[in-house]
Every structure is written in structure tokens, then in C-alpha cells.
Design a protein around this nucleic acid. Structure first.
Length: 410
DNA sequence: CGTCCACAGGAACGCTGGGACG
DNA sequence: CGTCCCAGCGTTCCTGTGGACG
């Protein structure tokens, strides 16, 4: 018998579940791919490329379809001598302005030791740098702007398609592919941008549970050895995905998490229990990440809500949260924010899914207001807070309070 | 049926801090 | 240095709004 033996592993190829994995075939997106392909056809014909706008919720295959088609396009374009094609992919996550997009694009085009700072230059200078880089390429350049809805002004979306017409570019034709999670982004565009960017629109609908099952099977076949998955696992992952948003990414992540948990437990199969466990773990991670991104005042507001929750005072309107909040702010030696700003923090918590809100209206007597309450167990929020936040005095006093009250109520 | 409550949330602006550049 | 740029976080001021009251 061998002294060393590889650990038993349920994974054949775990990478097949990772975000960057590119499957050979895209499941359930035939229609969209056909339209998309037609929109890209001019590139092969050596014509001015179309601008394309893709929209649909997260995890419905927009980015995957783009990677898939552009991969083929690149390959096929190479067969024709008279076509020079470059593709630039930029994820706009965290980029809020045309300015930032422009600087990042310049950096994408430039070599590593020639990068520019993302602040400091006048906007016009950055654009000039961008035109220069673009014109050096010649031929056709396709620029993919993923998560384009992060950009809050459309100046660059106006400039890019018109650069050639405005005499900024001589040798290069530019096509933009915009990908958005948010349909209303399209409506907020100025008409002139909309008409050029949205000349080809492709809508990606959410996946239903059946689509998700097919996708999960496809990935699971590569990722796991045979008979590792218990029969209920894929339907369960698919059901969660379909319930939330028809999001394939989320379902696949869940499957992977369940797999990791099963592997850690040295289980030979993945069970539905592993999926449930995975779901809690992912949820937890999501919350911690959300909380980490908040400012100090965001944390103080959350603490205030938590304590009110402990005391059974929720749902609670913002003005009733305020006294507690001001006290905590003093305790942490910070100036309390004005009510308007406090409400902003509350709505931020709502968007993170930590807090839920109900709108109430008492008419002339009481007017319209919102009532907030914690959408998660107090302990979960507190432990996430303690992982990520250091606010002198506040955390301790809240935890004390939680202990006392939790003990009293049990 | 118009009024009006009390807040929602948009708009405008100020301040701080970081970088580029002459 | 001072002068441009930018982002992020905050304040101030304001208009919008659904439904109970008179």
C-alpha cells in the first residue's frame, strides 16, 4: 500500500464552477445569441461596427454570451487578412464617471509601466490620450463596457461613438458594447446617446428553474465525478436561483459552496443539507461584505437599529431611531449626522438587504413615513459587525445589552 | 373633494483629501 | 508652492406624495 495517497476528492475539475469558466456551449440563450451574432456581423465584413446594448439582470448570461461570441469573432477575424480587430473589455464596477472610465481605458491600452493616474488630469486631456491610444490601433476596436450602469454621466458614451466623425480618429473605427443590469439606465440616457448606443438592443430575460437546472447539470458534469451529487441537489440550487433573481451565477456559486462544504466534511456525496449550509454561509458572507463597505455612521445607524430590535421596538420610524443614534455617535465621539443624511444610511442598509422597510401612511394625522426593521437575526448582524467594525465603546455596550436581553427573554 | 401631515428623496453646494503639473 | 482636476461624504433647501380628516 502506498504511503502517500491523494485525498479522495469529489471534484474532477472545480474550476468549471468558477466565474471565469467559459463553457463550450451556452445553455438556453439561442435566441439572444442569434441576434447578438447578427449585430456583430459587420465587423467581419470590414464595415463600421454596430454599437450593441445588452440588458438583463445579473447572472443571466450577458457577459458569458459576450465572451463567447467575441472569442469566436476574434478567431474568425484572424482568418481574413484585411481585418484588424482589437477587443477591449472593461468592467465599470466601481467606476462612477466618464472620467474614470476614460482613465481606465487609457490604462488598458497602455503598457504596465506607462499607466496614468486616475485623478488629476483635466477631462479633455484624458480624452486626448484615449484618442491617441485608439488611433494607434487602426482597424476595428470593440470596447466592451460591462456594468455600464455604474457610470452616472454619459459623456464618454457620447464621445466614443462619435470620435471618428468628430475627426478625433483617423485610422480606427470604434464599436461599443454596453452591458447593463439595470434597464432604467437606458431610459436615463440622453436621447442622442440612446440613439447611437442602443441601435442594437438585446434583452436577456431571467433564467427559469428549468434553464438553471440545465446550466447546473452542464457545469456539474465537468466539475464533479459521477454519482457525487444526490438527486435533489441540482433542483434545489436551481430553485433558490430562480426564486431570487433567475441568476445563474448565484446558483453555481451555491453549488460550489455546497461542494466545498461536502469536501471539507469528507463526505462522498453532496446532499441537500450541504446546499442549505452553503446558502447560510453565502448569505453571511454577503452581509459581512455589505457591512464592511459602510461608513462609520452607517455602522452607528445599524447599531441603533439593532438595539431597537433587541428591545422589540421594531418596526421603527427614522425619527425614533434618531435618539439612540445620537447617543451612540456621542459615545464614539463623532458628530451625529443630520436626519436627512441618517435616512440615506438607512436606505443604504435597505439596499444591502440587511434592513427591510414598510411604507406607512397615516394621512393628515401622521403623514407618510417608513418603518424599518432588521431583516436578519440579531446575532448574525452583531457577529458580522464585530468582524468588521471597531467603534470604541459602542460595540461592547450593544453586546452587553444583547446578552442581558436575550437571556431575559429566554 | 380639497387640505395637509410628515416624511421621502432630489438638487445644489461645501468641504476634505489625493494627484498632476508648471 | 499654487492651481487645476477629481471623488466621497456631508449639509441645506426644497418639492413630491398617499391617504385620513374636515
Amino acid at each position: 500500500m502506498a504511503l502517500f495517497e491523494r485525498d479522495y476528492d469529489i471534484y474532477r475539475e472545480r474550476d468549471a464552477l468558477r466565474e471565469d469558466y467559459q463553457p463550450d456551449e451556452l445553455v438556453g440563450r439561442d435566441e439572444e445569441l442569434r441576434t447578438y451574432k447578427a449585430a456583430l456581423q459587420p465587423v467581419i465584413n470590414g464595415e463600421q461596427p454596430n454599437n450593441v446594448f445588452l440588458y438583463g439582470k445579473t447572472g443571466v448570461g450577458k457577459t458569458a454570451a459576450t465572451r463567447y461570441l467575441l472569442g469566436h469573432l476574434r478567431e474568425d477575424a484572424a482568418k481574413y487578412d484585411d481585418i484588424s480587430l482589437s477587443i477591449q473589455f472593461l468592467n465599470c464596477d466601481g467606476l462612477t464617471s466618464s472620467y474614470q472610465v476614460a482613465t481606465h481605458l487609457v490604462n488598458e491600452f497602455r503598457s504596465e509601466h506607462d499607466q496614468i493616474s486616475t485623478t488629476g488630469y483635466p477631462l479633455a486631456t484624458v480624452y486626448d490620450m484615449l484618442w491617441e491610444e485608439l488611433d494607434d490601433y487602426g482597424g476595428t476596436v470593440l470596447i466592451v463596457l460591462d456594468e455600464i450602469d455604474n457610470i452616472e454621466d454619459d459623456s464618454i458614451l457620447y464621445q466614443l461613438p462619435r470620435a471618428r466623425a468628430n475627426g478625433k480618429l483617423d485610422d480606427t473605427q470604434v464599436g461599443i458594447i454596453g452591458i447593463s443590469n439595470d434597464f432604467s439606465f437606458r431610459d436615463d440616457l440622453s436621447p442622442k446617446v440612446k440613439s447611437s448606443l442602443c441601435e442594437n438592443e438585446i434583452h436577456f430575460p431571467a433564467y427559469d428553474a428549468e434553464d438553471l437546472k440545465a446550466i447546473l447539470r452542464q457545469r456539474a458534469d465537468v466539475a464533479f465525478y459521477e454519482d457525487v451529487l444526490e438527486p435533489g441537489v441540482i433542483p434545489l440550487c436551481a430553485a433558490y436561483g430562480a426564486k431570487d433573481a433567475g441568476d445563474a451565477r448565484q446558483s453555481i456559486d451555491l453549488l460550489m459552496k455546497a461542494g466545498d462544504i461536502a469536501r471539507d466534511a469528507e463526505s462522498e456525496t453532496i446532499t441537500e443539507d450541504h446546499v442549505e449550509e452553503g446558502r447560510t454561509a453565502l448569505e453571511r458572507g454577503r452581509i459581512e461584505e455589505g457591512i464592511r463597505g459602510l461608513t462609520e455612521h452607517g455602522h452607528l445607524v445599524l447599531y441603533s437599529l439593532v438595539t431597537n430590535e433587541i428591545e422589540g421596538e421594531t418596526p421603527i420610524r427614522s425619527r425614533d431611531i434618531r435618539p439612540r443614534y445620537t447617543r451612540f455617535a456621542r459615545l464614539a465621539e463623532r458628530d451625529p449626522l443630520v436626519p436627512r443624511r441618517m435616512r440615506d444610511h438607512l436606505s443604504e442598509l435597505t439596499m444591502l438587504g440587511i434592513v427591510s422597510v414598510t411604507e406607512r401612511n397615516e394621512g393628515r394625522r401622521g403623514g407618510t413615513y417608513r418603518e424599518y426593521e432588521l431583516d436578519l437575526p440579531v446575532e448574525q448582524v452583531l457577529s458580522a459587525l464585530s468582524e468588521t467594525v471597531q467603534l470604541v465603546g459602542v460595540h461592547e455596550s450593544v453586546v452587553d445589552m444583547a446578552d442581558v436581553d436575550l437571556a431575559a427573554s429566554s
